[in-house]
Amino acid sequence: MTTKTLKDLFIHSLSDIYSAEKQMTKSLPKMARASTNPGLRSAFEMHLEETRGQIERIDRVVEATGIKLKRIKCVAMEGLNEEGQEQIDEIEKGPLLDTALIAAAQKVEHYEIAAYGSLIALAKQLGETESVKLLADTLEEEKATDQKLSLIAEEKLAAESLRQ
């Protein structure tokens, strides 16, 4: 199907982020297992639960709008996940890998923040007020996760510098 209207673009974008969130339900447990920092592991586990809720929220958007999602794969998220997996495979477990995992996770969060921001703008233009609310709730969770990851990185770096 060709994208010709704002609604087509909304459906495509929603389908894409749905695929991205589904991919994250597979990569977050791997990131949690690879982490040696308890706070980071906990953040990944908590975000996995949030991600499941975000998928449910997308299902509610689909229900509210009466649209049907496309079966597509989010290649951007696939690439980000591959990058994170390469780091897990190449870096020995410990503080350096934890730092790499934080960076990888923040790349994901920034992608999701951009995607949800765009979806909210499209939903507003389409007059989908219930969708705007649902998508805004998810956007706030993504921003909070990004902030949490930044705090973990700052605390981790501060603790590491004290040991040197």
Score class of each variant (00 low, 15 high):
M1R: 10
M1K: 08
T2S: 03
T3P: 04
K4S: 10
T5Y: 02
T5I: 07
L6T: 07
L9M: 13
I11C: 00
H12S: 09
S15E: 01
I17V: 15
Y18Q: 11
Y18E: 01
E21R: 02
K22W: 04
Q23W: 09
Q23R: 00
M24L: 14
M24K: 09
M24H: 03
T25A: 13
T25Y: 03
T25S: 09
T25E: 07
K26I: 13
L28C: 01
L28Y: 04
P29Y: 01
M31I: 08
A32C: 09
A32S: 14
A34I: 10
A34V: 11
S35H: 02
N37T: 12
N37I: 08
P38C: 06
G39V: 06
S42R: 15
F44D: 06
E45L: 13
M46H: 14
M46P: 04
H47Y: 09
E50S: 05
E50P: 06
R52D: 10
Q54H: 08
Q54K: 02
I55Y: 04
R57L: 12
R57P: 11
I58S: 14
D59R: 10
V61E: 05
G66Q: 14
G66M: 07
I67K: 03
K68S: 14
K68L: 08
L69G: 15
K70Y: 05
I72K: 05
V75F: 02
V75Y: 02
V75R: 01
A76T: 14
E78T: 15
E78D: 00
E78F: 05
G79H: 03
N81S: 11
N81V: 13
G84Q: 04
G84V: 10
D89V: 03
I91K: 11
E92M: 08
K93I: 12
G94M: 06
P95A: 15
L97F: 12
D98T: 15
T99I: 14
I102T: 11
A103H: 06
A103M: 10
A105C: 05
Q106C: 07
V108P: 08
V108Y: 01
H110R: 14
Y111N: 06
E112G: 11
A115S: 15
Y116S: 04
G117Y: 09
A121P: 04
A123M: 05
A123Q: 02
Q125Y: 03
Q125T: 11
L126Q: 00
T129Y: 00
E130M: 02
E130Y: 03
S131P: 12
S131D: 06
S131K: 05
L134R: 01
L135S: 00
A136D: 11
A136P: 02
T138K: 08
E141S: 12
E141R: 04
K143L: 00
K148I: 02
L149V: 15
S150V: 14
I152E: 02
A153K: 09
E155K: 07
L157I: 15
S161N: 13
R163Y: 06
Q164I: 14
Q164W: 07
Q164K: 14
